[in-house]
Structures are given as C-alpha cells and as structure tokens.
Design a protein around this nucleic acid. Structure first.
Length: 497
RNA sequence: GUCCCCGUCGUCUAGCCCGGCCUAGGACACCGCCCUUUCACGGCGAUAACACGGGUUCAAAUCCCGUCGGGGACGCCA
C-alpha cells in the first residue's frame, strides 16, 4: 500500500463541510487554503459532504454550500457524500471493535449531558461500561438494548500521543487525558470522528488542513487511524477567524454577516473575497496584499500560515471588513471594462434598470474608480438609466460662491452651447470652458449647475464623459428641466432683492 | 474545572526559528496636504504596536522562566 505521505507524492486534500447551514467565511477560508495547497502542489482537491448528522442536515444547506463554492469559482476534482458511505464506516467500527479497541456503552443517550463537560472536570469514560465483560455486553446487545460504541483509549500506560502539525509544530498529549469518544451512536450512525477518519483513510487524504478548533481532536483521530491500520495524514491547523468580540465566528452568534452569499450579494468579486480571506492567517511575507489568484497560488505555502487568530472586522452598521472592501475596490479597478460590465448587469437588472445592449460598457469606465462594491454601481450610475431624474433640490444647482441668478445664467448659456456643440469629449471640453470664461466664472462654478442638471446631484463622474454617454437629447431635456426649477427659485430670490 | 493554543499599531501583518542591520517595516482605516470641473482615483505626510515582570547576554520584539490576558477543545454536533 503506497504511503500517501511519502515525500514527492502529489498531495490529496479535502474540504469537508457539514450541511447544517450556509457556507460561512471560516469554512470558505478553509476551502480556499486547501485549494491553494492542492493547486500549488499539483495535487487533488476532494470535496466531501460530512452529512452524518441526520438531525441537523438540510437540503437547503447543501444547496447553499454549493452555491457559495460555485461563486468562489474554485474547482475540485472529486466529490463524495458520507451518507453514501455508511457501510464503510460501520465495517470500520466493527473492525475496531473486534480488535478490542472499542466497547459498547449502554448508557442512555444524553444521560450524562450535565457532567460530561464543564465544571466537574473532563469526563473520561463510564468505567462500568468500559470494564463490562464481553459476555454481558454481547448478551445485552443481543437483547436489543441500544448502545453507543466507544473507543477504548489506552489508560494507565502513560502513553503519549504525538504529531507534528505543519502550522503549530510538535503536539503531544497524554492518552490518559483523552476521553473515550464515541465511534457509533446508538442509532447506528457513525460519529464525525469515525466517519471522517475512515473516509480520510479510504480516500487516501495526505494532508488535513482545517480549523484550529480541531487541534485537540486530532489526538482522537490519531488513535482511529492507528486502529484502522492506516498511516495518519499530515495535519495543518489554521488559526481561527474570530469576530471583533474575540470569539470564534459562528453562524449562530454572528448571523448572515458571516455568510459568503452576503458578500456575493453586496457585490464582492470572488477574487477579491479570496484575496481578503487569504490574508487572514497567511502572509506571503513580501508585503504584497493585492494579488491575483495565480499569484496567491504560486506563493502559497503552509509555512506562511500564522498561529494567532485573526479578527474579521465587522459591525452591525458596517458588515464588511474595511480591508475586504478596499481589496474589492482594487480588484474592480483592475477589471477590463467588458468583464466589469458583465458583472454589473445583474445589479442593474435587480434595481429595475433595463440597460440597452452596450450601454453598461459605456458607463462602466465612468464609475469603475468610484465604487468599492458592485452593488454601489446602482446608486453611482442611476441617472444614466433613468428616464426621469430622481427629484433633487434646485438649490443644488447653485454653484459655490454663487447665487440662483448665476445658476440661471449658466444653465441658459449651457443650453445654447450644448445645442451647438459636437458631443465628443474634446469639443465639449473646449466649448464649456470658453463658456465659463465668457461668463467670467471658474470652471468649477460653471460646471456644477450643468452637472447637477444632468446627473441630479453634485457628486458624479467627470462632466464631459458623462455628457457624451448621456447624449445631446437627454442633456438638453434635463437642462430645460433645471431651467424650470431655477425659475421658481429665482422668483422668490428676485422678490427679496 | 481539565487539557491545548495564542499574545507586534484600532484591524490584517513583516521581523521571532538562526539575538545586533528594529530610533520595529508594509497595508487597511482615520487625519492632514497636493492633484483636480464635483466625487473618486493617484501622490505625499502624520498619529499609532513589541501584554507585563523577571532572567540570560556586551546586546532581546527575537532565547528562558513566571504572571496576566484572549481563544479553543472536553457531545451518541461537526
């Protein structure tokens, strides 16, 4: 039997989510690190659904996990479901039991919930069950009494369990301190520990890369691999992703802000999201942060993984870490226009805009540097798609250090100019600057009324480009509407003079 | 409670293994200035950290011990 750990062999890694909720960012990061390790080393990426908890598994969750993974856009090579491999798990349990390494525990389920953990100290085993004779155990089992199968952890031998973690280094623990964990539940279903190890052995997983919350479980897993007669894989535990309150990120405590679909819906680019997650607990150690996926893959090593937990900075008011947002903006800016446009279209559609073909490509370059999330494009570019501008305060038309009369002069003159000028960037630039000079205004003063008239607000993309995309007809129409607004404003103004 | 892990700017981190190049580097955020037709982008700059206490050493963020702090595991959940 070839040893999967033999140096030089292509690694086989796995991501094994349990379908009990949406895919959360911590799981996503584990998936990403596994993928990176596999692809960096030309190995195999296995996706395995750890669905042995029939009580908590849901189809919706399975869908949601695949949805999240598909969005990330990272592939995998093999796919398995533990629920389809139960025979293998049970056979392994039997094999372990026959070797005398496990025993039946007839204690009713949940009987010891109160004292198995917490204030009383660690629970190790029920001696009555561990010590029960083979005869009595067989008799009670034959009589149909339900039982859980527990691993008979070596006790009193002073045995030391050890493994070298790729991230945390040499780890040791006294076997006497490990509790007799369950292998099979009383309903016959394998537990996570059993199923996971049996499958890891069967699928010849060479490297287990997972969250640090499994670090102490690893000693149990070592025992299972040993009982199975399988070589233990190489372990690499990842520092945990924690919330600003310092506790492990969880769906239950922290809600949808930790779901990857929340990031997707807000307009994160998968590449940016991956880039962000990579930087949480890993560093290329060359001060690079904004990286393309290929670059990250080439640079990725387990040696670069840190040991300290990383905080994902979010609040209720602001659900996204500022660095994630910045990286997203960087990736957006790096996107070619056609690709950006394609990604933007669903957001415009969602907002009820129905851009004509090719229109988004015209708009995208104007907002590319002005949005940090794809979803922001809707607010940033609405006036390009709306037939009627959303109502704005006519006072916005008044330029800095100016008055309504100045605004009126600008608008009226602009109408003439726009009607007579070719609608290309340079012509408009030239014409409108001359207009400003003629009116004795600074460019900024002259442009603001026009900008507000055509965009409906002060903050907008550069004026000339915007006018070109909007086209003469729309611009003139909006200029006239602004004129009307100004008239009503000007009337009251005049009376006060 | 028991066992395990961790502790550098607000946050992500480099440096730690192999002490001196560290008056601790980068990034985000924040603030200021510049650029500029608004907003943004970009450029420049400022503020900001070695948890604490002992030791070893000519020299410690780096090595050792302790303390404190945080986290994780301890389930017939995964």
């Amino acid at each position: 039997m070839p040893d999967p750990n033999s140096p030089g062999a292509a690694p086989r890694v796995r991501f094994a989510p349990s379908p009990t909720g949406f895919l959360h960012v911590g799981s996503a990061r584990t998936f990403i690190f596994n993928w990176l390790y596999a692809r960096h080393n030309h190995g195999t990426m296995v996706l395995r659904l750890d669905d042995t908890d029939v009580e908590r598994n849901t189809d919706a969750s399975v869908q949601s996990i695949f949805e999240g993974l598909r969005w990330l856009g990272l592939d995998w090579d093999e796919e398995y479901k533990q629920s389809e491999r139960l025979d293998l798990h049970r056979a392994a349990a039997l094999q372990i039991q026959e070797k005398g390494l496990a025993y039946r525990d007839f204690t009713p389920a949940h009987a010891g919930d109160d004292n198995q953990s917490g204030a009383q100290g660690a629970w190790l085993c029920n001696p009555g069950m561990r010590e029960m004779s083979r005869e009595e155990s067989d008799r009670r089992a034959a009589a149909g009494e339900p039982f859980a199968l527990r691993y008979r952890v070596p006790r009193g031998l002073g045995r030391v369990l050890r493994f070298a973690d790729s991230v945390y280094g040499e780890q040791t623990k006294l076997a006497d301190e490990v509790e007799d964990f369950a292998l099979l539940r009383s309903d016959g279903m394998p537990t996570y520990h059993l199923a996971s190890c049996v499958d890891d052995a069967d699928l010849r997983i060479s490297h287990i890369i997972r969250g640090q919350d499994h670090l102490t479980n690893t000693f149990k897993h070592l025992l299972i691999f040993e009982a199975l007669g399988a070589p233990a894989p190489q372990f690499a535990h990842l520092p945990l992703l924690v919330a600003p309150d310092g506790t492990k990120l969880s769906k239950r405590k922290h809600g949808p802000v930790v779901s990857v679909t929340t990031y997707r819906d807000a307009g994160f680019l998968p590449r940016a999201f991956i880039n962000f997650l990579c930087l949480l607990g890993w560093s290329p150690k060359n001060d690079k942060e904004f990286m393309a996926l290929d670059e990250i893959r080439d640079l990725f090593t387990l040696e670069g993984v840190n040991r300290a937990n990383a905080v994902v900075n979010f609040t209720e008011a602001d659900p996204f870490d500022a660095k994630a947002v910045w990286l997203n903006a960087e990736h957006i800016r790096a996107l070619p226009v056609d690709e950006l446009s394609r990604l933007l279209e669903p957001f415009f559609a969602e907002a009820g805009f129905n851009p004509k073909p090719g229109r988004v490509e015209l708009v995208a370059p104007l907002i590319r540097e002005r949005i940090k999330l794809l979803s922001e494009a809707v607010a940033a570019a609405d006036f390009f798609f709306l037939d009627r501008l959303v109502p704005y305060d006519p006072a916005e038309l008044i330029p800095q250090k100016g008055d309504a009369a100045m605004a009126r002069r600008v608008i009226e003159t602009a109408e003439q100019v726009l009607a007579a000028t070719r609608f290309d960037h340079d012509s408009l630039d030239h014409a409108l600057r001359s207009m400003a000079t003629q009116l004795g205004l600074k460019a900024g003063q002259a442009f603001q009324p026009i900008r507000v008239a055509v965009c409906g607000r002060k903050n907008a993309p550069p004026l000339f480009e915007t006018l070109v995309v909007l086209g003469r007809d729309v611009c003139l129409e909006r200029i006239r509407q602004a004129e009307d607004k100004l008239k009503s404003l000007g009337a009251s103004d005049a009376s006060s003079h």
